[in-house]
Amino acid sequence: MSLKRIIIAGAIGTTFMTLYSYWASKKEREQFLEPALLNELAEDAEVLPEAVDEETNPAGWAGHYGQGVVFVAAYYYLYRNALQKPSVAKGIFAGAVSGIIGIAIWEAMFRMSKNPPKTERYRYYRQLFIAHLIFSTFAIYGYRLPDVVKQLR
């Protein structure tokens, strides 16, 4: 397993997912930014310091990007073929599975929270599912990026 490739792919996928979430947030006039929502959820945890600003607090960003790396590591173990020979179809399939898992995780976090973020969940989950399609497609291609860079040299 190439940890470097997994980190690169996770960062690329998460970045494009986050760009989509920013766009969807503005379009829908809702809070769909995963790092900000993570920071709001973290406020319930007594062991963590209070967030000064939900959108810029590094804890939410670290959690968001860290989860992206975890998803790519799961892809590595479950979908090695998709990473070795990426395609849009494989990205969409992995994204659909990831989207369903992501929605389940977010729903669990919202339910466990004493004071969950105020967001319209159906609309959030719809955008989250699409965001995971984007994440996985860019992550799968991002996994191959070191090979592309090596060929260009």
Score class of each variant (00 low, 15 high):
residue 1 M to N: 13
residue 1 M to V: 14
residue 3 L to M: 10
residue 3 L to W: 12
residue 6 I to S: 06
residue 9 A to H: 01
residue 10 G to K: 00
residue 11 A to L: 15
residue 13 G to M: 00
residue 15 T to K: 11
residue 22 Y to C: 10
residue 23 W to V: 15
residue 24 A to V: 02
residue 25 S to D: 05
residue 25 S to I: 03
residue 26 K to S: 15
residue 26 K to Q: 14
residue 31 Q to I: 14
residue 31 Q to H: 12
residue 34 E to L: 06
residue 34 E to Q: 06
residue 37 L to I: 07
residue 37 L to V: 07
residue 38 L to H: 09
residue 39 N to G: 08
residue 41 L to W: 00
residue 41 L to F: 03
residue 43 E to S: 13
residue 43 E to V: 10
residue 45 A to I: 11
residue 45 A to G: 12
residue 46 E to T: 12
residue 47 V to I: 15
residue 48 L to K: 15
residue 49 P to Y: 07
residue 51 A to T: 09
residue 51 A to Y: 04
residue 60 G to I: 01
residue 61 W to Q: 06
residue 63 G to N: 13
residue 66 G to Y: 10
residue 67 Q to V: 14
residue 67 Q to Y: 14
residue 67 Q to W: 15
residue 68 G to L: 01
residue 72 V to E: 00
residue 75 Y to N: 04
residue 83 L to E: 00
residue 89 A to C: 14
residue 92 I to T: 07
residue 94 A to L: 03
residue 94 A to H: 00
residue 95 G to N: 02
residue 108 A to Y: 15
residue 109 M to N: 08
residue 109 M to Q: 10
residue 111 R to W: 14
residue 111 R to S: 13
residue 114 K to P: 09
residue 119 T to R: 00
residue 122 Y to P: 13
residue 123 R to K: 14
residue 128 L to G: 03
residue 133 L to C: 11
residue 136 S to N: 12
residue 137 T to N: 02
residue 139 A to V: 04
residue 139 A to N: 05
residue 139 A to C: 02
residue 141 Y to L: 04
residue 144 R to D: 05
